[in-house]
Write a protein that binds this DNA or RNA. Structure first.
Lengths: 229, 229
DNA sequence: AGCAGTCCGACAGGTTCCCGACAGCTTTCG
DNA sequence: CGAAAGCTGTCGGGAACCTGTCGGACTGCT
């Protein structure tokens, strides 16, 4: 999967590119609209992450020129919190999407995956994560433990999704914090403990009394997996 | 594998470089940000260990300039315990990692290996160590003796990993102490005996009554290997 | 027998983890 | 628009767990 990231702030562009590479994608970055258009022609990305606040040609301009050159590559926009959210909303047609800065990297990756799935055509598949008796439908946002439907808050949902995606690898609290919370979040990492605690209560309310689904690996972190051995 | 170590404290930089060379890597050290940038250009490391507390250009500055010059080399950061804890948030995000000083050299090497494995692309493999009937999965942290799943404390886990990695070489108590405990640890070396003792109990509880997995080589140290003769 | 090396029980201090209570903020609803 | 409901993060107490020290018993070698 080939990703072009366009942002005039190099740390942000690199952050996105690095995470994408970590997931096994090819990623290149551009720091201006001109460079973006040039790279789009050479690199032929499957998807583009595009900041709207660019010096020179802005994000909309880049999009227009991309479309005029015949590319139907899907685009996910980045915007500042108080910026042009309304105008963007009108543009998110055809499987495109947008995200407000500062964002959480896991959420960006999730949206990229969704847009790619949608743009693959009418025969796109549901994305359902399963671990043990737990299932999470990323389209409907339905989370079930066995038959029981759970009601999760947004943060709980994101933490659970991250753990399910990484299962059965143990994730440290720092990794969870860094991937699920917005970049620049200054909180202490015991917020992770707290969300885990709240998640566990909801999971346990909903089912069997066997080994807990979210296990603590003392001194290392948390992992979600079926009890074994 | 090529490693660049950046730390203004020469003994620390040398310690890391020495251990890396002992593992068969090429390693060079830099004691300032400027030197680090120069070396990065000449030496083309595959991975960088970077202290955040540098005189002159600090660690973040070095990282920024590295990235700006187009290098996507992965980085493992070193930080003081109480120093930049808040700014550290975000460092595990792109697959990079960080470690708090004072650290244990084996833990640093383990993290370097992990980061390298991940950044190698989509085809990364689980890292599973095996000796005799014992297996250790470094991603899931699962340790098994035969079928039986063991529950190890962090120290026990690190000592066992060290012995398994070095198997079938005999390691002295001093070597175990120097690699698995933080540098500067002032304890007596019989802590090693104690951890070995605790490990043996957990291993023996879990299986056969044949020759012990962790053998004592009187006067030299310990070794883990399959019984033979 | 004597000695150096090793093993490991018991204990105390320190660390990590869990989670109740609460307050600020955002979203929803009337 | 204001109120109510819901969400999120901070604080802190308490429990569980981990680790190193001490010291006495034990082992293997000479």
């Amino acid at each position: 999967m080939r990703l072009l990231v366009v942002d005039d702030d190099p740390p942000i562009a690199d952050l996105v590119a690095t995470v994408a590479r970590y997931e096994g994608w090819d990623a290149v970055t551009a720091n201006s609209g001109e460079q973006a258009l040039r790279l789009a022609g050479e690199f032929h990305p499957d998807i583009v992450v595009l900041d709207l606040m660019l010096p020179g040609v802005d994000g909309f301009g880049v999009l227009d020129r991309l479309r005029r050159s015949g590319t139907m590559v899907p685009v996910v926009f980045l915007t500042a919190r108080d910026g042009v959210a309304d105008r963007v909303a009108g543009l998110t047609r055809g499987g495109d999407d947008y995200l407000v800065k500062p964002f959480a990297v896991e959420e960006l990756m999730a949206r990229l995956r969704t847009v790619l799935r949608r743009s693959a055509g009418p025969n796109f598949q549901r994305s359902v994560l399963r671990v043990g008796g737990l299932s999470m439908d990323e389209d409907t946002h339905e989370v079930r433990h066995g038959e029981k439907l759970l009601t999760l808050t947004p943060t709980e949902y994101e933490v659970l999704r991250f753990l399910m995606r990484k299962s059965p690898t143990v994730m440290t609290k720092a990794q969870i914090l860094d991937h699920v919370w917005e970049y620049g979040f200054g909180g202490r990492s015991n917020v992770v403990e707290l969300v885990i605690s709240r998640l566990r209560r909801k999971l346990d309310d909903a089912g069997d009394t066997g080994a807990p689904l979210i296990q603590t690996v003392r001194g290392f972190g948390y992992v979600i997996r079926q009890a074994s051995g």
